[in-house]
Design a binder for these strands. Structure first.
Lengths: 191, 191
DNA sequence: TGAATGACTAAATTTCTATTTTGGTCATTT
DNA sequence: AAATGACCAAAATAGAAATTTAGTCATTCA
């Protein structure tokens, strides 16, 4: 068995998308890095978009794996929630592809990069939704719409981490870890 | 006393910014609508930016007035909160200048339009912060950082109204009115 | 003989330059 | 002294020319 050309292409594409973003990655580039002819890419992927999709799916899969590592059924729901969100946002901050796509959206507004980021967010909400549902079933939190609740949780987390620091001194991780359950678990109603 | 040229200019500028946005509004245009010479504008405002600032301040003032109309000290805090946010977001949706600026930021990313929108949000958070502080003092809600709390409230409201509908069926006003206190007042902790 | 290839093309993007528009000034007018 | 609009440098736009790129396919290998 000779080398797995499909794998070579995927690895080369992942590297290039992470390094240069979606738009600045050319099919010639990918072929060159992979050490294959350009035509070969098109025997595996119909077009650039599908190749990108493959890389995004792999990324989301990896994020799910990373999230799973940190969830501990023994712990309280809000404890797990914070650990997962922190891990995922850290991951997103560390992962070159996610960084590059975010940057690309802000700087040149590439449509595909935009869609890539949305896919990641959708996957994260989907993951949290499952955790919310479990927590509701276990009676750990009140009955609620899991989709809306998961959405609210991600948005609140992103507001406290990413949005807040655009106009204020950033909140420490400890503070965020306190604020999330402060607002969403206990609520603001006086005792 | 002859006509108030300053007022003519402000009215013309307000009309033009709302109709064409920041970038597409020219000083010649404003002068023409106001029926004054272009040089006259510069006897009142140092440059285009300052003229825009004047219009933005007027808009924010008007929003504050509109918000005040709806706050009733007899009502519960969360009731007032929803009424104010709804009124303000409605206002923003109705008000041509706010619409135009939002559109301009999305379409051509004009810096000044961006800053204009940010000013509006900052003013809204500032207004809510005062209400939060009052509510804390009255013991209507738990002690909390008013700035962070106001920020969280606006973000959550925008998440439920604007962000949610980007990927889902929009939530009705009644639903939003229920969800806001559901998450922030009562909290998700089981009874 | 079928998988791999890279020269090729139409379309998209970028670069370059000529032209127009615009924010701001200031000598003149009212 | 307040108002003005012709004027100017700088910025924005338009559009032609040159380059790049996604995707194809006849040819080449293994």
């Amino acid at each position: 068995m000779t080398v797995d050309r499909r794998k070579l292409i995927i690895e080369a594409a992942a590297k290039s998308f992470a390094l240069f973003g979606y738009k600045a990655t050319t099919m010639d580039q990918v072929a060159k890095i992979a050490g294959v002819g350009k035509g070969t890419i098109y025997t595996f992927f119909a077009n650039k978009e599908e190749l990108f999709q493959e890389i995004m799916n792999k990324l989301i899969q990896e994020m799910k794996r990373v999230a799973e590592e940190v969830v501990d059924p023994e712990r309280k729901f809000f404890d797990n929630l914070h650990r997962v969100l922190e891990r995922l946002l850290d991951f997103r901050e560390e992962h070159e592809l996610a960084i590059k796509l975010t940057q690309e959206v802000k700087e040149i507004g590439t449509q595909m990069a935009q869609e890539g980021i949305q896919q990641i967010e959708k996957a994260v909400v989907g993951y949290i939704r499952i955790q919310v549902k479990k927590a509701v079933d276990k009676g750990e939190i009140k009955p609620c719409d899991p989709e809306i609740t998961a959405f609210v949780m991600l948005k609140l987390y992103m507001a406290l981490t990413a949005d807040w620091k655009k106009s204020h001194e950033p909140l420490g991780k400890g503070q965020v870890a306190e604020l999330l359950p402060f607002y969403l678990q206990a609520g603001l109603a006086p005792d």
